[in-house]
Structure formats: C-alpha cells, structure tokens
C-alpha cells in the first residue's frame, strides 16, 4: 500500500541539500530498498543558507530489522537529533526539550508488560519473551502532533496485531487500553498533576489490529532512546501523536471504551479517536496545516504544508470509519 503522491508538490518539499549530499550514507543507514531510493531521490536543490553537517551517528544499540518498502514516506526524514530532542512526553516535563534532558535516569530494562482483560491468554511477560520470534521491520511514518507540527520518522517495530493475537482476545474485546509506566523517582514530570497519571490511551480493536498500527522498539535502526518511549511504544500514524502511548506496561482488552488521559482532561479538545483531520479544529489549534520539521538543514521558510485527512493514510484506514460522523466522533 504505497503512499499516494499528492498532485502538486510545492517547492518546499524539495530535499534540503544536506540530506541530498548525505543520501548515500542515509541509504546505507536505513538499508532502503531500490524502490524506496527512487522515492527519496531529490527533486532539486533547496537553497539552504549554510549546509548543515551530516547528523551524528545515532547512539544506542543497533537492532537487526528488515526495511518494509510498503511503508515509507516521501520527502526528507526528520533528523535523529530532532526526533530525539523535540517531543512531548509530559512524564519528563511539559517542555519539548524536557524528555531528552530529564530521561537519563529512566531504566527501561528489565521491563515487563501486564496483559489482561477480555483475552484467553493473559499474563505478565518479560519484554524479551513478549517480542520473541517477532521479526522487526522498519517503517517510515509521518508523525502529526495535535500542536500542528509534524515529522517523518523511521521506526523499527512490528505490527501491534501480531502481538495482540498471541493473547487470544475474546469476542468481547472491543477495545484495547494501554498504560504508560508511572515511576515518579525516574520521571520528574509526574510530580505535576497535568494529567491524571498514569498516562492511559486506547484504541478500538479494529484500529489496534490494523496493519498500520505499530509497536516500536527502535528508531533510526537503534534501540528507542528513553525520551522516545523506551522500551516499547505505540505508533498510530493516522492519529495525533498523543494516541501513541509510550513506555507501555499494561495492555488490557475491554468491552467498553477505556478512559483515556487527554480525553478525560479536556473532552472538548481531545476526542477518543483523535484522527488527524484538517477540517476538524482542535482548540486552540487549527488543523488545516502543519509545520513539517524535516531534513537536517535549517530553514525558516516553507515549512508549512497542508494537513491531509488521516495524516495521508486515508487509503488504508478510511474504511475503519465508514458511516461515522468524523466531526462528532473526533
């Protein structure tokens, strides 16, 4: 299911020079297939004022994975530096630089996940046992924050559905809930009652089983850094980023819709579905457009792009919502 090319690609989508010059290394790094290489080839030279140095080699343990060419995204990637130093993870603080700054003491290993609710094979699983035998793949996904900025990120992980099937959900399992770890000693942001901790999110079972829904254990070919949700996080690319639960310690199947943190905190702003939708604004942000943070070059102009329904994944996921009023069920 290839990402469809938008009809008119504006000049601002042109690959920054630094990325262009760096393409061979990037290709090696990502081990992209020739098909993906064709998709990433530059369409021209961007006028970046000072060519940025190539991004430093990503720290962390290398993972073995296979790139999945079916899940890729046009245009330059967001640099490793930006992916890992600019995100929301309120357990470490409310500023977007806080997660990288304050997650050093976090211990993502050993790790276990409690699985329960409407399933035949619940239990408490060590992370290694949980993902044993599941092949890792790399997928390049667009990431859209509800704050109207976006990134293009090469995740390493596996489809959530592959894992969920192992627990044999029953016919009563209509939803899946995810809980983030709650460790005040290692997560300084938890001392502020911004949300009703621990962080909880959830998906409808068909959303959870959808092949696009990913459980990530790595980014840029390396083990996930603490600030990006180590050791195990959700990636639901057609929904706003807050649906993608980080540092998951609990998975629970349920018949009723689970309570989710942001929806609970501000139901008028954050819906349960939180599908990316340019026509449904989310207070206080308009969602018509987004600022794309991509490339390693520095640019002030031309970062804004139009936001697409379901973050551009409508071909794959629109059928999940057939007959639903997306304005009401936002």
């Amino acid at each position: 299911m290839p990402t469809r090319r938008p009809p008119d690609l504006p000049e601002r989508d042109v690959t920054p020079e630094a990325i262009y010059q760096d393409r061979r290394r990037l290709v090696r790094l990502l081990a992209l297939s020739p098909l993906a290489l064709a998709a990433c080839s530059p369409k021209g030279e961007a006028g970046s004022p000072t060519p940025a140095p190539p991004p430093p080699p990503a720290p962390g343990t290398a993972l073995s994975y296979t790139p999945n060419p079916a899940f890729r995204t046009r245009g330059p990637l967001t640099s490793w530096q930006d992916v890992t130093h600019y995100n929301n993870y309120y357990e470490f603080g409310t500023s977007k630089s806080d997660p990288a700054r304050y997650s050093g003491a976090f211990k993502p290993r050993p790790w276990s996940v409690t699985v329960g609710g409407e399933c035949e094979a619940p239990g408490i699983f060590a992370l290694e046992d949980l993902i044993k035998g599941i092949p890792l793949e790399q997928r390049i996904y667009r990431h859209r924050c509800v704050e109207a900025w976006s990134m293009v990120i090469p995740w390493v992980g596996f489809p959530l559905g592959t894992l969920l099937k192992r627990f044999k959900p029953t016919s009563r399992a209509k939803y899946v809930a995810f809980t983030t770890v709650d460790r005040p000693g290692q997560m300084p942001g938890l001392s502020y009652p911004v949300l009703d901790w621990p962080y909880r999110e959830g998906l409808r079972i068909d959303e959870a089983m959808h092949p696009l829904t990913l459980l990530a254990v790595g980014v840029y070919g390396r083990v996930l850094p603490n600030q990006n949700g180590a050791p195990l996080r959700l990636v639901v690319p057609w929904k706003y980023g807050f649906k993608s639960t980080k540092a998951i310690v609990q998975i629970a199947f349920s018949e009723t819709r689970p309570v989710t943190s942001w929806n609970q905190a501000a139901p008028d702003r954050y819906g349960f579905y939180a599908n990316v939708n340019p026509d449904v604004g989310t207070v206080p942000w308009s969602q018509h457009t987004e600022r794309r943070i991509a490339g390693s070059g520095f640019s002030l102009f031309g970062n804004r792009i139009a936001t697409r329904l379901f973050n551009g994944y409508a071909d794959q996921v629109a059928s999940l919502y057939a007959g639903m009023d997306l304005r009401r069920d936002y």
Binding site: G281, P284, H288, G302, R304, A306
Partner: peptide
C-alpha cells in the same frame, strides 16, 4: 509572513475563528 507564508487563505480563518 514566515509561519503562515504561502497559506494566505488561512490567515483570515485563523484570526476570526481561533479565539487566542
């Protein structure tokens, strides 16, 4: 100019519809 640049049609909607 810098942020909304290129999306001029959005400007009016932003000013009129976004209270902040």
């Amino acid at each position: 100019v810098i942020d909304l640049g290129g999306f001029w049609s959005q400007i009016f909607a932003e000013i009129a519809k976004k209270p902040y």
